[in-house]
Amino acid sequence: MAKGKYHSPRRLDAAAATRAAILDSARDLYIQRGYVNVTVAQIASAAGVAPQTVYASTGGKAEILRELLIPAIHDPSAARTLVAVARCDDPREVVDLAARGTRLAHEAHWTMLEALVPECRTEPIAAAVLEAGNAEYAAALAAIAARLTDLKALRPELSGDTAADVLWFYVGQDAWFSLVSHRKWTFDDAERWLASEAKRALLACPSR
C-alpha cells in the first residue's frame, strides 16, 4: 500500500500564523523605518522567529514587499466599480463611480501605499507587481471610458483612448498621491474635486 503524505491541520495552521506574523511585522517596520532601513533579522525579531524561518516562510525583503502590495493592488473595489459602471446609464454617475471606486481602493490601504509605493521603484520584484497592478488599473479605466463612449457622452473631440487617459490623469494613482499625500487634502475633498473636474474634461454635458 502506497504511503501518502501526511498533512497536519494543526501544523498548517501554525505555518499560516507564522507567515501572517512575519508579514505583519514587516509591514509595520517598513512603514515606520522605510523599506531600505529594515533587515530580515529585524523582521524575524519583531515576529518572534528565526531569520531562517522568515526566508523559508515568505522569502527575503523584496518578496515580502511584493506580498504586502498584492492585496492593495488587487483590491475588490475595482471589480465592484466595473459592475456598477456597466449597469449605469447616467454618464455623470459613471464618472462619480470611477472617482469613488479608485478612492476606496486607495483609502483602504493608504498607510501602506503611501509608505511603500515609492520604495517599489528600487526593488525589481516589487516593481513588477506594481507595474502589473497599473496595467489592471489602466484596463479598468479603459472599460469605464468605453462605457462613456457607448452612452455617447464624451466631448466630440475625445476618442475612447484619450478618454481613458483623461480618467488616468484625474483618478489614477498619481492624482490621489498628489492631493492626499503631498497636498494633505482629505479623501472626501479629493474625490469631490477630481470627479467634478473629470466630468468637465470628459463629458459633452458635464453638469446635472
Rank of each mutant, 00 (worst) to 15 (best):
P9K: 02
R11S: 12
D13M: 13
A14C: 07
A17F: 08
T18S: 08
A20I: 07
A20V: 10
A21W: 05
I22H: 03
D24F: 03
D28Q: 04
L29M: 03
Y30P: 00
I31P: 05
Q32D: 15
Q32S: 15
Q32P: 04
R33Y: 05
R33S: 13
V36W: 06
V36N: 12
V38S: 13
V40K: 04
A41L: 15
A41S: 12
Q42E: 15
A47V: 01
V49W: 00
V49G: 04
V49I: 09
A50I: 05
P51W: 00
Q52E: 14
Y55R: 14
Y55A: 10
A56H: 12
A62S: 12
A62R: 12
A62K: 14
E63G: 11
L65W: 06
R66K: 15
E67T: 06
E67Y: 03
L68H: 01
L69W: 02
P71Y: 06
P71S: 14
A72F: 01
A72E: 03
A72G: 07
H74Y: 15
H74L: 11
S77P: 02
A78E: 09
T81E: 07
V83F: 09
A84K: 02
A84L: 13
E93V: 13
V94W: 02
V94H: 01
V94P: 03
D96V: 10
A98H: 04
T102L: 06
T102R: 02
R103I: 06
A105G: 04
H106E: 13
H109D: 07
H109E: 05
T111I: 08
E119T: 12
E119Y: 09
P124Q: 03
A127H: 13
E131W: 07
G133T: 10
G133I: 08
A135M: 14
A138R: 10
A142Y: 09
I144V: 10
I144K: 01
A145L: 02
L148A: 06
T149M: 03
T149D: 12
A153N: 06
A153M: 08
R155S: 04
R155A: 01
E157K: 13
L158K: 00
S159H: 09
S159V: 06
S159N: 10
T162W: 09
D165L: 14
F169Q: 12
Y170F: 14
Y170Q: 03
V171A: 04
Q173S: 15
Q173D: 14
R183K: 15
K184F: 09
A190L: 05
E191V: 06
E191K: 14
R192Q: 04
W193K: 15
L194A: 11
E197D: 13
A198W: 00
A198L: 06
A198S: 03
R200S: 14
A201C: 03
A201E: 04
L203T: 01
A204N: 02
P206L: 01
S207A: 11
R208K: 15
